[in-house]
Design a binder for these strands. Structure first.
Lengths: 271, 271
DNA sequence: ACAAAAGTGTTAATAATACACCCATGT
DNA sequence: ACATGGGTGTATTATTAACACTTTTGT
Protein backbone atom coordinates (compact mmCIF):
# COMPACT_ATOMS: atom_id res chain seq x y z
CA UNK A 1 0.00 0.00 0.00
CA UNK A 2 1.18 3.49 -0.79
CA UNK A 3 1.11 4.89 2.67
CA UNK A 4 4.24 7.00 2.53
CA UNK A 5 3.53 10.58 1.56
CA UNK A 6 -0.19 10.23 1.86
CA UNK A 7 0.10 9.50 5.54
CA UNK A 8 2.39 12.47 5.90
CA UNK A 9 0.04 14.78 4.12
CA UNK A 10 -2.68 13.60 6.45
CA UNK A 11 -0.78 14.54 9.52
CA UNK A 12 0.52 17.96 8.57
CA UNK A 13 -0.84 20.77 10.70
CA UNK A 14 -3.96 22.31 9.24
CA UNK A 15 -4.45 25.90 8.24
CA UNK A 16 -6.59 27.70 10.77
CA UNK A 17 -8.56 30.86 10.21
CA UNK A 18 -11.35 32.76 11.79
CA UNK A 19 -14.51 33.92 10.03
CA UNK A 20 -17.43 36.02 11.17
CA UNK A 21 -21.11 36.01 10.35
CA UNK A 22 -22.37 39.48 11.15
CA UNK A 23 -26.05 40.12 11.54
CA UNK A 24 -27.98 43.35 11.71
CA UNK A 25 -31.58 44.27 11.42
CA UNK A 26 -32.40 45.56 7.96
CA UNK A 27 -34.34 48.72 7.14
CA UNK A 28 -38.09 48.94 7.70
CA UNK A 29 -38.78 47.41 4.32
CA UNK A 30 -41.38 49.77 2.93
CA UNK A 31 -41.96 47.62 -0.14
CA UNK A 32 -45.17 46.11 1.15
CA UNK A 33 -46.49 46.52 -2.38
CA UNK A 34 -46.42 42.79 -2.92
CA UNK A 35 -49.25 41.12 -1.11
CA UNK A 36 -46.77 39.21 1.02
CA UNK A 37 -48.32 39.28 4.46
CA UNK A 38 -45.16 38.92 6.48
CA UNK A 39 -42.63 40.71 4.36
CA UNK A 40 -41.52 42.85 7.31
CA UNK A 41 -37.94 43.56 8.21
CA UNK A 42 -35.20 41.04 7.62
CA UNK A 43 -31.75 40.23 8.88
CA UNK A 44 -28.96 41.55 6.73
CA UNK A 45 -25.45 40.22 6.41
CA UNK A 46 -22.37 42.01 5.10
CA UNK A 47 -20.07 40.06 2.80
CA UNK A 48 -16.73 40.80 1.22
CA UNK A 49 -15.86 40.23 -2.41
CA UNK A 50 -13.02 37.84 -3.07
CA UNK A 51 -10.15 39.33 -5.01
CA UNK A 52 -8.31 36.06 -5.67
CA UNK A 53 -8.83 32.55 -6.83
CA UNK A 54 -10.54 30.37 -5.95
CA UNK A 55 -14.01 31.81 -6.09
CA UNK A 56 -12.70 35.05 -7.53
CA UNK A 57 -15.42 37.73 -7.43
CA UNK A 58 -17.67 35.56 -5.32
CA UNK A 59 -18.78 36.84 -1.96
CA UNK A 60 -17.44 35.49 1.28
CA UNK A 61 -17.59 35.91 5.01
CA UNK A 62 -15.08 38.34 6.46
CA UNK A 63 -12.20 36.51 8.04
CA UNK A 64 -8.55 36.45 8.83
CA UNK A 65 -5.77 34.52 10.45
CA UNK A 66 -4.93 33.85 14.03
CA UNK A 67 -2.31 35.49 16.16
CA UNK A 68 -0.68 33.73 19.02
CA UNK A 69 -0.91 36.72 21.30
CA UNK A 70 -4.63 37.33 20.94
CA UNK A 71 -7.68 35.41 22.01
CA UNK A 72 -9.83 33.80 19.35
CA UNK A 73 -12.45 36.40 20.04
CA UNK A 74 -10.00 39.21 19.54
CA UNK A 75 -8.87 37.66 16.29
CA UNK A 76 -12.47 37.52 15.12
CA UNK A 77 -13.03 41.11 16.15
CA UNK A 78 -9.95 42.28 14.32
CA UNK A 79 -10.70 40.25 11.23
CA UNK A 80 -14.11 41.82 11.08
CA UNK A 81 -12.78 45.28 11.66
CA UNK A 82 -10.01 45.17 9.11
CA UNK A 83 -12.07 43.65 6.32
CA UNK A 84 -15.35 45.50 6.78
CA UNK A 85 -14.63 48.41 9.12
CA UNK A 86 -17.58 47.29 11.22
CA UNK A 87 -17.53 47.24 15.00
CA UNK A 88 -19.89 44.68 16.44
CA UNK A 89 -21.72 45.17 19.71
CA UNK A 90 -21.68 41.48 20.39
CA UNK A 91 -19.43 38.64 19.45
CA UNK A 92 -19.65 34.97 20.27
CA UNK A 93 -18.17 31.76 19.04
CA UNK A 94 -20.51 29.91 16.74
CA UNK A 95 -18.92 26.73 15.47
CA UNK A 96 -15.68 25.33 14.13
CA UNK A 97 -15.79 23.91 10.66
CA UNK A 98 -13.31 21.42 9.36
CA UNK A 99 -13.02 18.07 7.72
CA UNK A 100 -11.93 16.79 4.35
CA UNK A 101 -14.73 18.59 2.54
CA UNK A 102 -12.99 21.85 3.26
CA UNK A 103 -9.54 20.94 2.07
CA UNK A 104 -7.95 23.10 -0.58
CA UNK A 105 -5.64 20.97 -2.68
CA UNK A 106 -5.04 18.60 0.17
CA UNK A 107 -4.34 21.34 2.68
CA UNK A 108 -6.77 20.87 5.51
CA UNK A 109 -8.56 24.09 6.35
CA UNK A 110 -10.23 24.84 9.64
CA UNK A 111 -12.45 27.85 10.24
CA UNK A 112 -13.34 28.95 13.72
CA UNK A 113 -16.50 30.89 13.06
CA UNK A 114 -17.82 33.64 15.27
CA UNK A 115 -21.06 35.45 14.89
CA UNK A 116 -21.49 39.09 15.59
CA UNK A 117 -24.37 41.45 15.97
CA UNK A 118 -24.69 45.13 15.35
CA UNK A 119 -27.42 46.95 17.18
CA UNK A 120 -27.05 50.52 16.11
CA UNK A 121 -27.53 49.71 12.46
CA UNK A 122 -30.08 52.31 11.46
CA UNK A 123 -30.90 52.62 7.81
CA UNK A 124 -27.83 54.69 6.98
CA UNK A 125 -25.33 52.11 8.08
CA UNK A 126 -25.91 49.86 5.13
CA UNK A 127 -23.76 51.99 2.88
CA UNK A 128 -21.59 49.58 0.97
CA UNK A 129 -17.90 49.94 0.30
CA UNK A 130 -16.21 48.76 -2.87
CA UNK A 131 -15.66 45.27 -1.66
CA UNK A 132 -18.18 45.06 1.15
CA UNK A 133 -21.87 44.80 0.56
CA UNK A 134 -24.88 44.07 2.74
CA UNK A 135 -27.33 41.41 1.65
CA UNK A 136 -30.68 40.44 3.07
CA UNK A 137 -30.68 36.91 4.44
CA UNK A 138 -33.14 35.71 1.82
CA UNK A 139 -31.29 37.12 -1.16
CA UNK A 140 -27.70 36.06 -0.72
CA UNK A 141 -25.39 35.95 -3.71
CA UNK A 142 -23.31 32.98 -4.73
CA UNK A 143 -20.93 32.39 -1.88
CA UNK A 144 -17.37 31.12 -1.77
CA UNK A 145 -16.39 27.80 -0.22
CA UNK A 146 -18.97 26.44 2.19
CA UNK A 147 -19.88 29.86 3.49
CA UNK A 148 -23.47 29.46 2.46
CA UNK A 149 -23.74 26.50 4.75
CA UNK A 150 -22.13 28.46 7.55
CA UNK A 151 -24.61 31.28 7.18
CA UNK A 152 -27.50 28.83 7.11
CA UNK A 153 -26.20 27.35 10.31
CA UNK A 154 -25.93 30.79 11.92
CA UNK A 155 -29.49 31.65 10.94
CA UNK A 156 -30.77 28.34 12.19
CA UNK A 157 -29.00 28.87 15.48
CA UNK A 158 -30.39 32.36 15.72
CA UNK A 159 -33.95 31.13 15.32
CA UNK A 160 -33.42 28.68 18.14
CA UNK A 161 -31.40 30.73 20.52
CA UNK A 162 -33.68 33.73 20.39
CA UNK A 163 -36.27 31.68 22.22
CA UNK A 164 -34.26 31.05 25.34
CA UNK A 165 -31.69 33.82 25.52
CA UNK A 166 -31.35 37.54 25.26
CA UNK A 167 -29.55 37.80 21.93
CA UNK A 168 -32.46 39.75 20.50
CA UNK A 169 -31.33 42.72 22.54
CA UNK A 170 -28.02 42.66 20.67
CA UNK A 171 -29.79 43.58 17.47
CA UNK A 172 -31.25 46.80 18.81
CA UNK A 173 -29.40 49.80 20.14
CA UNK A 174 -28.54 50.41 23.75
CA UNK A 175 -31.99 51.88 24.19
CA UNK A 176 -34.97 50.89 22.13
CA UNK A 177 -38.72 50.79 21.91
CA UNK A 178 -40.73 47.63 22.23
CA UNK A 179 -41.61 47.97 18.59
CA UNK A 180 -37.95 47.84 17.63
CA UNK A 181 -37.36 44.82 19.78
CA UNK A 182 -40.40 43.13 18.34
CA UNK A 183 -39.11 43.73 14.83
CA UNK A 184 -36.06 41.69 15.76
CA UNK A 185 -38.16 38.74 16.81
CA UNK A 186 -40.28 39.04 13.71
CA UNK A 187 -37.26 39.24 11.46
CA UNK A 188 -35.76 36.13 13.01
CA UNK A 189 -38.90 34.06 13.15
CA UNK A 190 -40.31 35.36 9.89
CA UNK A 191 -43.75 35.64 11.41
CA UNK A 192 -45.75 38.52 12.82
CA UNK A 193 -46.04 38.68 16.59
CA UNK A 194 -48.93 40.03 18.62
CA UNK A 195 -47.77 43.37 19.94
CA UNK A 196 -49.87 43.30 23.09
CA UNK A 197 -48.69 39.90 24.25
CA UNK A 198 -45.14 40.63 23.23
CA UNK A 199 -45.12 43.72 25.41
CA UNK A 200 -46.34 41.84 28.41
CA UNK A 201 -43.95 38.98 27.91
CA UNK A 202 -40.97 41.31 27.66
CA UNK A 203 -41.94 43.45 30.61
CA UNK A 204 -42.67 40.36 32.69
CA UNK A 205 -39.05 39.29 32.25
CA UNK A 206 -38.10 42.11 34.55
CA UNK A 207 -35.09 42.89 32.40
CA UNK A 208 -36.40 45.97 30.65
CA UNK A 209 -35.97 49.29 32.36
CA UNK A 210 -38.03 52.27 31.29
CA UNK A 211 -35.69 55.14 30.52
CA UNK A 212 -38.52 57.63 30.78
CA UNK A 213 -37.84 58.85 27.27
CA UNK A 214 -40.29 58.65 24.42
CA UNK A 215 -39.47 58.05 20.79
CA UNK A 216 -41.65 59.04 17.87
CA UNK A 217 -41.07 56.80 14.88
CA UNK A 218 -44.04 57.66 12.64
CA UNK A 219 -46.89 60.06 12.54
CA UNK A 220 -48.49 58.48 15.55
CA UNK A 221 -48.19 58.10 19.30
CA UNK A 222 -44.61 57.98 20.56
CA UNK A 223 -43.38 54.83 22.27
CA UNK A 224 -41.62 54.41 25.58
CA UNK A 225 -37.88 53.81 25.37
CA UNK A 226 -36.38 50.96 27.34
CA UNK A 227 -32.96 49.72 28.27
CA UNK A 228 -31.93 46.12 28.73
CA UNK A 229 -30.79 45.44 32.27
CA UNK A 230 -29.75 41.80 32.58
CA UNK A 231 -30.53 40.04 35.83
CA UNK A 232 -28.89 36.92 37.18
CA UNK A 233 -30.50 34.04 35.36
CA UNK A 234 -31.15 30.53 36.60
CA UNK A 235 -28.13 29.02 34.89
CA UNK A 236 -25.88 31.93 34.07
CA UNK A 237 -22.45 31.07 32.88
CA UNK A 238 -20.00 31.59 35.73
CA UNK A 239 -17.08 32.50 33.50
CA UNK A 240 -15.96 33.16 29.96
CA UNK A 241 -15.17 30.01 28.01
CA UNK A 242 -12.80 31.92 25.78
CA UNK A 243 -9.27 32.71 26.89
CA UNK A 244 -8.62 33.11 30.59
CA UNK A 245 -6.29 31.02 32.72
CA UNK A 246 -2.63 31.49 33.37
CA UNK A 247 -0.31 31.96 30.47
CA UNK A 248 3.27 30.88 30.14
CA UNK A 249 3.73 32.69 26.90
CA UNK A 250 6.17 35.52 27.63
CA UNK A 251 5.53 37.96 24.81
CA UNK A 252 2.42 40.01 25.29
CA UNK A 253 3.57 43.04 23.40
CA UNK A 254 1.63 46.24 23.05
CA UNK A 255 -2.11 46.35 23.53
CA UNK A 256 -4.20 48.86 21.68
CA UNK A 257 -6.89 50.86 23.44
CA UNK A 258 -9.30 49.05 21.20
CA UNK A 259 -8.29 45.73 22.60
CA UNK A 260 -8.62 47.04 26.10
CA UNK A 261 -12.13 48.12 25.27
CA UNK A 262 -12.91 44.68 23.96
CA UNK A 263 -12.30 43.07 27.29
CA UNK A 264 -15.26 45.03 28.56
CA UNK A 265 -17.41 44.37 25.55
CA UNK A 266 -17.87 40.65 25.82
CA UNK A 267 -20.81 39.66 27.95
CA UNK A 268 -21.75 36.47 29.70
CA UNK A 269 -24.40 35.28 27.34
CA UNK A 270 -26.43 32.15 27.43
CA UNK A 271 -25.30 29.28 25.21
CA UNK B 1 11.01 48.09 18.48
CA UNK B 2 11.96 44.47 18.41
CA UNK B 3 9.30 43.31 16.04
CA UNK B 4 11.33 40.81 14.07
CA UNK B 5 11.06 37.31 15.42
CA UNK B 6 8.27 38.17 17.80
CA UNK B 7 5.99 39.07 14.93
CA UNK B 8 6.99 35.88 13.21
CA UNK B 9 6.29 33.78 16.24
CA UNK B 10 2.88 35.38 16.43
CA UNK B 11 1.96 34.39 12.95
CA UNK B 12 3.14 30.82 12.86
CA UNK B 13 0.37 28.29 12.43
CA UNK B 14 -1.00 27.08 15.73
CA UNK B 15 -1.07 23.54 16.95
CA UNK B 16 -4.54 22.11 16.71
CA UNK B 17 -5.91 19.18 18.62
CA UNK B 18 -9.20 17.68 19.54
CA UNK B 19 -10.36 16.81 23.04
CA UNK B 20 -13.45 15.11 24.35
CA UNK B 21 -15.49 15.50 27.50
CA UNK B 22 -17.36 12.25 27.98
CA UNK B 23 -20.29 12.04 30.29
CA UNK B 24 -22.14 9.08 31.67
CA UNK B 25 -24.60 8.54 34.44
CA UNK B 26 -22.93 7.19 37.53
CA UNK B 27 -24.08 4.25 39.60
CA UNK B 28 -27.16 4.48 41.83
CA UNK B 29 -25.12 5.91 44.67
CA UNK B 30 -26.27 3.80 47.55
CA UNK B 31 -24.34 5.86 50.06
CA UNK B 32 -27.35 7.74 51.31
CA UNK B 33 -25.88 7.33 54.78
CA UNK B 34 -24.99 10.99 54.92
CA UNK B 35 -28.08 13.09 55.57
CA UNK B 36 -27.59 14.80 52.23
CA UNK B 37 -31.09 15.03 50.83
CA UNK B 38 -30.20 15.16 47.17
CA UNK B 39 -27.14 12.99 47.01
CA UNK B 40 -28.65 10.86 44.23
CA UNK B 41 -26.80 9.82 41.11
CA UNK B 42 -24.16 12.00 39.52
CA UNK B 43 -22.50 12.46 36.19
CA UNK B 44 -19.18 10.73 35.83
CA UNK B 45 -16.31 11.63 33.55
CA UNK B 46 -13.42 9.44 32.42
CA UNK B 47 -9.97 11.01 32.38
CA UNK B 48 -6.58 9.82 31.22
CA UNK B 49 -3.38 10.11 33.18
CA UNK B 50 -0.64 12.12 31.57
CA UNK B 51 2.57 10.22 31.01
CA UNK B 52 4.70 13.24 30.05
CA UNK B 53 5.56 16.72 31.10
CA UNK B 54 4.00 19.12 31.54
CA UNK B 55 1.46 18.08 34.13
CA UNK B 56 3.02 14.62 34.40
CA UNK B 57 0.73 12.30 36.34
CA UNK B 58 -2.08 14.82 36.31
CA UNK B 59 -5.36 13.84 34.74
CA UNK B 60 -6.51 15.17 31.42
CA UNK B 61 -9.28 14.94 28.87
CA UNK B 62 -8.78 12.32 26.20
CA UNK B 63 -7.62 13.88 22.98
CA UNK B 64 -5.57 13.56 19.88
CA UNK B 65 -4.49 15.22 16.70
CA UNK B 66 -6.33 15.95 13.50
CA UNK B 67 -6.13 14.13 10.25
CA UNK B 68 -6.78 15.81 6.97
CA UNK B 69 -8.87 12.96 5.66
CA UNK B 70 -11.34 12.79 8.53
CA UNK B 71 -14.02 15.08 9.79
CA UNK B 72 -13.50 16.81 13.11
CA UNK B 73 -16.14 14.56 14.55
CA UNK B 74 -14.38 11.47 13.34
CA UNK B 75 -11.14 12.72 14.81
CA UNK B 76 -12.85 13.21 18.13
CA UNK B 77 -14.37 9.78 17.96
CA UNK B 78 -11.06 8.16 17.19
CA UNK B 79 -9.19 10.13 19.82
CA UNK B 80 -11.69 8.96 22.38
CA UNK B 81 -11.55 5.39 21.19
CA UNK B 82 -7.79 5.06 21.10
CA UNK B 83 -7.15 6.69 24.45
CA UNK B 84 -10.00 5.25 26.50
CA UNK B 85 -11.44 2.41 24.46
CA UNK B 86 -14.87 3.92 24.95
CA UNK B 87 -17.47 4.15 22.21
CA UNK B 88 -19.85 7.03 22.71
CA UNK B 89 -23.47 6.91 21.66
CA UNK B 90 -23.51 10.58 20.96
CA UNK B 91 -20.93 13.11 19.94
CA UNK B 92 -21.24 16.82 19.34
CA UNK B 93 -18.96 19.78 19.04
CA UNK B 94 -18.82 21.79 22.23
CA UNK B 95 -16.44 24.70 21.87
CA UNK B 96 -13.05 25.65 20.52
CA UNK B 97 -10.56 26.91 23.03
CA UNK B 98 -7.61 29.06 22.09
CA UNK B 99 -5.89 32.25 22.97
CA UNK B 100 -2.59 33.22 24.55
CA UNK B 101 -3.52 31.68 27.89
CA UNK B 102 -3.19 28.28 26.29
CA UNK B 103 0.19 28.74 24.69
CA UNK B 104 2.93 26.28 25.54
CA UNK B 105 6.26 28.04 25.36
CA UNK B 106 4.99 30.47 22.79
CA UNK B 107 3.40 27.79 20.65
CA UNK B 108 -0.25 28.67 20.30
CA UNK B 109 -2.47 25.71 21.08
CA UNK B 110 -6.01 25.31 19.91
CA UNK B 111 -8.34 22.60 21.17
CA UNK B 112 -11.51 21.78 19.35
CA UNK B 113 -13.52 20.17 22.11
CA UNK B 114 -16.32 17.71 21.58
CA UNK B 115 -18.55 16.27 24.18
CA UNK B 116 -19.76 12.73 24.16
CA UNK B 117 -22.34 10.73 26.01
CA UNK B 118 -22.55 7.09 26.84
CA UNK B 119 -25.95 5.68 27.52
CA UNK B 120 -25.34 2.03 28.18
CA UNK B 121 -23.09 2.72 31.13
CA UNK B 122 -24.51 0.37 33.70
CA UNK B 123 -22.61 -0.06 36.91
CA UNK B 124 -20.04 -2.47 35.50
CA UNK B 125 -18.78 -0.12 32.82
CA UNK B 126 -16.86 2.04 35.24
CA UNK B 127 -14.00 -0.42 35.44
CA UNK B 128 -10.88 1.65 35.18
CA UNK B 129 -7.85 0.85 33.11
CA UNK B 130 -4.30 1.65 34.13
CA UNK B 131 -4.34 5.12 32.73
CA UNK B 132 -8.05 5.74 32.47
CA UNK B 133 -10.24 6.41 35.45
CA UNK B 134 -13.79 7.58 35.96
CA UNK B 135 -14.47 10.46 38.32
CA UNK B 136 -17.72 11.86 39.59
CA UNK B 137 -18.26 15.43 38.46
CA UNK B 138 -18.04 16.79 41.97
CA UNK B 139 -14.81 15.03 42.90
CA UNK B 140 -12.47 15.69 40.03
CA UNK B 141 -8.74 15.38 40.55
CA UNK B 142 -6.21 18.06 39.69
CA UNK B 143 -6.44 18.51 35.97
CA UNK B 144 -3.85 19.36 33.35
CA UNK B 145 -3.85 22.62 31.41
CA UNK B 146 -7.21 24.36 31.42
CA UNK B 147 -9.15 21.12 31.28
CA UNK B 148 -10.93 21.88 34.48
CA UNK B 149 -12.38 24.97 32.90
CA UNK B 150 -13.40 22.98 29.86
CA UNK B 151 -15.24 20.46 31.99
CA UNK B 152 -16.95 23.21 33.92
CA UNK B 153 -18.10 24.66 30.66
CA UNK B 154 -19.41 21.31 29.49
CA UNK B 155 -21.34 20.79 32.70
CA UNK B 156 -22.74 24.29 32.54
CA UNK B 157 -23.85 23.71 28.97
CA UNK B 158 -25.40 20.43 29.96
CA UNK B 159 -27.49 22.04 32.66
CA UNK B 160 -28.79 24.53 30.16
CA UNK B 161 -29.26 22.37 27.14
CA UNK B 162 -31.13 19.66 28.95
CA UNK B 163 -34.01 22.08 29.35
CA UNK B 164 -34.68 22.62 25.70
CA UNK B 165 -33.31 19.58 23.93
CA UNK B 166 -33.30 15.84 24.05
CA UNK B 167 -29.74 15.21 25.18
CA UNK B 168 -31.02 13.56 28.33
CA UNK B 169 -31.99 10.57 26.22
CA UNK B 170 -28.32 10.18 25.25
CA UNK B 171 -27.45 9.31 28.82
CA UNK B 172 -29.78 6.35 29.02
CA UNK B 173 -29.74 3.24 26.91
CA UNK B 174 -31.72 2.70 23.76
CA UNK B 175 -34.63 1.64 25.90
CA UNK B 176 -35.19 2.87 29.42
CA UNK B 177 -37.69 3.36 32.19
CA UNK B 178 -38.99 6.74 33.21
CA UNK B 179 -37.10 6.35 36.44
CA UNK B 180 -33.83 6.00 34.58
CA UNK B 181 -34.57 9.05 32.51
CA UNK B 182 -35.51 11.01 35.57
CA UNK B 183 -32.24 10.10 37.19
CA UNK B 184 -30.49 11.83 34.32
CA UNK B 185 -32.39 15.03 34.89
CA UNK B 186 -31.75 14.84 38.58
CA UNK B 187 -28.06 14.20 38.11
CA UNK B 188 -27.74 17.18 35.81
CA UNK B 189 -29.85 19.60 37.80
CA UNK B 190 -28.71 18.31 41.16
CA UNK B 191 -32.23 18.50 42.50
CA UNK B 192 -34.96 15.93 43.01
CA UNK B 193 -37.82 15.98 40.53
CA UNK B 194 -41.44 15.07 41.16
CA UNK B 195 -41.89 11.67 39.55
CA UNK B 196 -45.57 12.12 38.75
CA UNK B 197 -45.16 15.42 36.96
CA UNK B 198 -42.00 14.26 35.24
CA UNK B 199 -43.85 11.30 33.83
CA UNK B 200 -46.62 13.45 32.42
CA UNK B 201 -44.23 15.98 30.98
CA UNK B 202 -42.22 13.33 29.19
CA UNK B 203 -45.20 11.44 27.86
CA UNK B 204 -46.83 14.68 26.75
CA UNK B 205 -43.84 15.33 24.50
CA UNK B 206 -45.08 12.52 22.32
CA UNK B 207 -41.54 11.30 21.80
CA UNK B 208 -41.59 8.30 24.09
CA UNK B 209 -42.86 5.04 22.72
CA UNK B 210 -43.89 2.26 25.05
CA UNK B 211 -42.03 -0.88 24.09
CA UNK B 212 -44.48 -3.05 26.00
CA UNK B 213 -41.68 -4.50 28.08
CA UNK B 214 -41.41 -4.15 31.81
CA UNK B 215 -38.24 -3.82 33.83
CA UNK B 216 -37.86 -4.69 37.47
CA UNK B 217 -35.13 -2.69 39.14
CA UNK B 218 -35.77 -3.31 42.82
CA UNK B 219 -37.99 -5.40 45.00
CA UNK B 220 -41.09 -3.56 43.86
CA UNK B 221 -43.39 -3.04 40.93
CA UNK B 222 -41.71 -3.24 37.53
CA UNK B 223 -41.67 -0.13 35.35
CA UNK B 224 -42.68 0.26 31.73
CA UNK B 225 -39.83 0.42 29.25
CA UNK B 226 -39.81 3.20 26.67
CA UNK B 227 -37.91 4.08 23.57
CA UNK B 228 -37.11 7.58 22.37
CA UNK B 229 -38.69 8.28 19.00
CA UNK B 230 -37.74 11.79 17.91
CA UNK B 231 -40.36 13.78 16.06
CA UNK B 232 -39.77 16.74 13.78
CA UNK B 233 -39.30 19.71 16.05
CA UNK B 234 -40.22 23.33 15.48
CA UNK B 235 -36.75 24.39 14.49
CA UNK B 236 -34.91 21.22 13.63
CA UNK B 237 -31.54 21.60 12.05
CA UNK B 238 -31.90 20.94 8.33
CA UNK B 239 -28.37 19.60 7.93
CA UNK B 240 -25.19 18.67 9.71
CA UNK B 241 -22.91 21.60 10.42
CA UNK B 242 -19.89 19.34 10.44
CA UNK B 243 -18.27 18.21 7.23
CA UNK B 244 -20.41 17.88 4.16
CA UNK B 245 -20.01 19.78 0.93
CA UNK B 246 -17.89 18.94 -2.07
CA UNK B 247 -14.25 18.13 -1.59
CA UNK B 248 -11.40 18.78 -3.93
CA UNK B 249 -8.98 16.75 -1.90
CA UNK B 250 -8.17 13.69 -3.99
CA UNK B 251 -6.88 11.24 -1.41
CA UNK B 252 -9.65 9.58 0.50
CA UNK B 253 -7.88 6.35 1.21
CA UNK B 254 -9.40 3.40 2.96
CA UNK B 255 -12.38 3.75 5.23
CA UNK B 256 -12.84 1.40 8.12
CA UNK B 257 -16.19 -0.23 8.85
CA UNK B 258 -16.15 1.73 12.06
CA UNK B 259 -16.03 4.98 10.20
CA UNK B 260 -18.86 3.88 8.01
CA UNK B 261 -20.89 3.16 11.08
CA UNK B 262 -20.16 6.60 12.41
CA UNK B 263 -21.86 8.28 9.52
CA UNK B 264 -25.07 6.72 10.74
CA UNK B 265 -24.43 7.45 14.38
CA UNK B 266 -24.53 11.20 14.36
CA UNK B 267 -27.98 12.61 14.81
CA UNK B 268 -29.54 15.97 14.09
CA UNK B 269 -29.64 17.32 17.57
CA UNK B 270 -30.79 20.66 18.80
CA UNK B 271 -28.12 23.27 19.51
C1' DA C 1 -62.30 63.37 12.27
C1' DC C 2 -59.19 59.87 10.82
C1' DA C 3 -55.25 56.77 10.57
C1' DA C 4 -51.90 54.27 12.97
C1' DA C 5 -49.52 52.58 16.35
C1' DA C 6 -49.11 52.63 21.71
C1' DG C 7 -50.84 50.56 25.40
C1' DT C 8 -54.64 48.08 28.58
C1' DG C 9 -58.27 44.57 29.72
C1' DT C 10 -60.51 40.24 29.42
C1' DT C 11 -61.11 35.67 28.69
C1' DA C 12 -59.99 31.08 27.29
C1' DA C 13 -56.64 27.56 26.66
C1' DT C 14 -52.58 25.44 28.02
C1' DA C 15 -48.86 24.10 30.83
C1' DA C 16 -46.40 23.71 35.32
C1' DT C 17 -46.75 22.37 40.31
C1' DA C 18 -47.97 20.24 44.67
C1' DC C 19 -49.54 16.45 46.71
C1' DA C 20 -53.06 12.82 47.87
C1' DC C 21 -53.86 8.35 46.70
C1' DC C 22 -54.29 3.72 44.48
C1' DC C 23 -51.58 -0.24 42.19
C1' DA C 24 -48.33 -4.02 41.65
C1' DT C 25 -44.62 -6.49 43.38
C1' DG C 26 -41.09 -9.08 46.50
C1' DT C 27 -40.21 -10.20 51.00
C1' DA D 1 -49.00 -7.24 55.99
C1' DC D 2 -45.80 -3.97 54.61
C1' DA D 3 -42.32 -1.43 52.30
C1' DT D 4 -41.24 0.59 47.87
C1' DG D 5 -41.54 2.67 43.97
C1' DG D 6 -44.94 2.68 39.65
C1' DG D 7 -48.66 5.07 38.11
C1' DT D 8 -53.25 8.05 38.30
C1' DG D 9 -56.28 11.93 39.90
C1' DT D 10 -57.05 16.49 41.01
C1' DA D 11 -57.01 21.08 42.46
C1' DT D 12 -54.13 25.31 42.12
C1' DT D 13 -51.47 28.31 39.99
C1' DA D 14 -48.56 30.34 36.29
C1' DT D 15 -47.99 31.14 31.46
C1' DT D 16 -49.51 31.82 26.82
C1' DA D 17 -52.58 33.26 23.20
C1' DA D 18 -56.45 35.67 20.92
C1' DC D 19 -58.55 39.75 20.31
C1' DA D 20 -61.56 43.73 21.69
C1' DC D 21 -60.83 48.09 23.19
C1' DT D 22 -58.97 52.69 24.81
C1' DT D 23 -55.22 56.29 24.34
C1' DT D 24 -52.11 59.41 22.13
C1' DT D 25 -50.19 61.45 18.49
C1' DG D 26 -49.74 63.82 13.37
C1' DT D 27 -52.25 65.12 9.53
Amino acid sequence: MAMGNIAERRMQPPQVGVSVVILALGPEDADADAGDAHSGTKLWIPLVRRVRQPYLDCWALPGGGLRADRSLEQCAYRALETTTDLHPDYLEQLYTFGGPGRSRGGLPMISIVYWAMIGHAAAGDFTDGDNVRWFPEDALPRLAFDHRRIIDYALWRMRNKIEYSDIATRLVGETFTLRQLRRVYEAVSGEPIDAANFRRRMLASGQLEDTGDKLREGRHRPAAVYRYTPQRQRHDIPFEPDDGGETDAPDHGERSPLEEAMAVLMPSALP
